[in-house]
Design a protein around this nucleic acid. Structure first.
Length: 479
RNA sequence: GAGGGUGUAGCUCAGUAGGUAGAGCAACGCACUUUUAAUGCGUAGGUCUUGGGUUCGAGCCCCAACACCCUCACCA
């Protein structure tokens, strides 16, 4: 064991005293508990003198001698417990040993103090867990950013807004599932460990299976498996699960992040656009105060309909260049300081697009009809095959969603894979022959959509760091 | 990968010009039966992230390392 601080020693001594009183400092099951918010709601209905029981952590402690007030925090909020020596004389020695950070359960009669605070006047008290570590300061909470990520188990109760944010995330994901279920989508699970990492261009994590003596990749996307399910006859499927990408870490990238992918047979990217707008709007409606959400220095207006503008249109609007005028675009790229040497025209165009357009996409905007060469898994527009039926949704200058009309022609898909393989060694792209085989059995035309759930949570909760919406973001070990 | 910032008591933070380390909260002791960050009086609490260096003397200056934050780069 490591050395123990004086504060911890003092707490350890109290624990021993609790044991000496014949009380288990790590109590067991408690029945009949109610959440503090439920007790408040019940009391408002005028249930005078009713008994209630509640369990939580002591986050405030006011000792007035023969009377002690404790504020208990549970997952829903706080509840005051009042303990009087007159009523609890036989337990007073134990009660005096309880302190900030301890988990206790109380049962007693509801009432109000003369200042109007709803209070459980304690008749029974149970020690549920003695805290040996000193809790953070009661007023400021835990504000050290690193500590809040490393010790989320403290952050969640020391900073109520942190708990609220994660509860909101959980509720939003539940609402998404409900939204999709109501529309007939089935939630499925596809492999996280894959013998080849396909469906996106990203660097995968590599792991090893000992018994099979083979390397495996943590998935970078579920796409190719979900499409196999379309071939199998599942017409409306989705998956909400983790993807893993072995790339840089910053305020909008965590190495493991939650992706939702949705596929609908016989649909196209227009239907996925409508679905996205309807789903996110319903979440804003249900979980946000207004249709305008503050996000860093931005105010995002979620009012519908959201703008739908073509890639070429937006390029013209923000760079001043016509997409067919390669000379002008290369000139613009030079002005922007983009290195164009040995770069394909379309790559330069996309660099200029990212540099000039994405910066300005604050309110939800569907960027539609991408250059087909940038979209190896997307069906081309029949009216003009140089464009692909793809959209990306930008909100708050971030890419939040990516969707397309799925390419279901195995011959074209095969060629696209071959092209993609050239010069993409770092992404370890491989030919997925089995996926081509699946397409050869016939995949229905379909719309497919991917939504970055963490980023969606960022804009819906108004926080600028992905680490504030991921319970346990990746950090280096610090000891 | 580049640049900038932060690291001091359990927590939140000060620390002047390089001269014995400070406050609030928490803790400990005393008082108090309706408090709301309870209050009043008193006590104790430190490897100043780590390792070097300069100096008579370093929390402070210099070098290096580590972690975190921010910006940029990377990221279809």
């Amino acid at each position: 064991m490591e050395e123990v601080s004086k504060l911890e020693q003092q707490r350890q001594e109290k624990l021993e005293k609790i044991k000496a009183l014949g009380v288990d400092p790590y109590g067991s099951r408690m029945d009949g508990l109610e959440l503090s918010t439920d007790i408040r709601a019940k009391y408002q209905e005028g249930v005078e003198g009713q008994k209630a029981s509640c369990a939580g952590r002591i986050v405030l402690h006011r000792d007035i001698g023969k009377l002690i007030f404790m504020t208990l925090r549970d997952s829903s909020g706080t509840m005051q417990a009042g303990l009087s020596k007159g009523q609890l004389g036989d337990k007073w020695e134990l009660i005096k040993l309880l302190e900030l950070g301890d988990l206790v359960g109380v049962r007693g009669q509801l009432g109000r103090t003369k200042t109007g605070e709803l209070t459980i006047w304690v008749e029974e008290i149970k020690v549920l867990a003695k805290a040996l570590s000193q809790p953070p300061e009661k007023w400021h909470g835990l504000s050290d950013v690193e500590a809040r990520y490393r010790q989320r188990y403290v952050d969640l109760w020391a900073n109520p807004e942190s708990m609220e944010r994660f509860k909101k995330r959980i509720a939003i994901v539940a609402s998404i599932r409900q939204f999709l279920s109501q529309r007939g989508f089935m939630e499925v699970e596809t492999p996280m460990m894959q013998s080849q990492a396909g469906g996106a261009a990203a660097k995968p994590f590599i792991t090893h299976h000992n018994a099979l003596d083979m390397d495996l990749f943590m998935r970078i996307a579920p796409e190719l498996y979900l499409k196999r399910l379309l071939v199998g006859g599942m017409e409306k499927v989705y998956e909400i699960n983790r993807n893993f990408r072995n790339e840089g870490i910053d305020t909008s990238h965590n190495p493991e992040f939650t992706m939702m992918e949705i596929y609908q047979a016989y649909a196209d990217y227009n239907i996925m656009m409508d679905l996205t707008e309807a789903m996110v709007s319903s979440l804003v409606e249900k979980y946000c105060e207004s249709k305008t959400i503050a996000f860093g220095d931005m105010n995002i207006d979620f009012s519908t309909p959201w703008r739908r503008a073509t890639y070429a249109e937006l390029l013209k609007e923000h760079s001043g260049c016509d997409i067919s005028d390669i000379a002008a675009i290369r000139e613009k790229a030079k002005q922007l300081g983009i290195n164009c040497v040995n770069k394909d025209d379309w790559v330069v165009i996309n660099d200029v697009f990212e540099e000039t357009v994405e910066e300005s996409l604050v309110n939800p905007t569907f960027v539609i009809d991408y250059p087909a060469v940038l979209c190896p898994l997307t069906k081309r527009k029949t009216s003009d095959p140089q464009w692909a039926e793809r959209f990306e949704l930008f909100i708050g200058r971030m890419e939040l969603a990516n969707a397309y009309t799925e390419l279901n022609d195995p011959a074209v898909q095969y060629e696209n894979f071959k092209i993609q393989l050239r010069g993409q060694d770092e992404t370890m792209a491989t030919m997925d022959d089995d996926f081509i085989t699946a397409l050869k059995y016939g995949m229905p035309p379909a719309g497919g959509l991917g939504v970055g759930i963490d980023r969606l949570m960022m804009v819906l909760t108004g926080v600028k760091s992905i680490r504030d919406v991921v319970l346990f973001p990746l950090l280096k070990p610090n000891a």
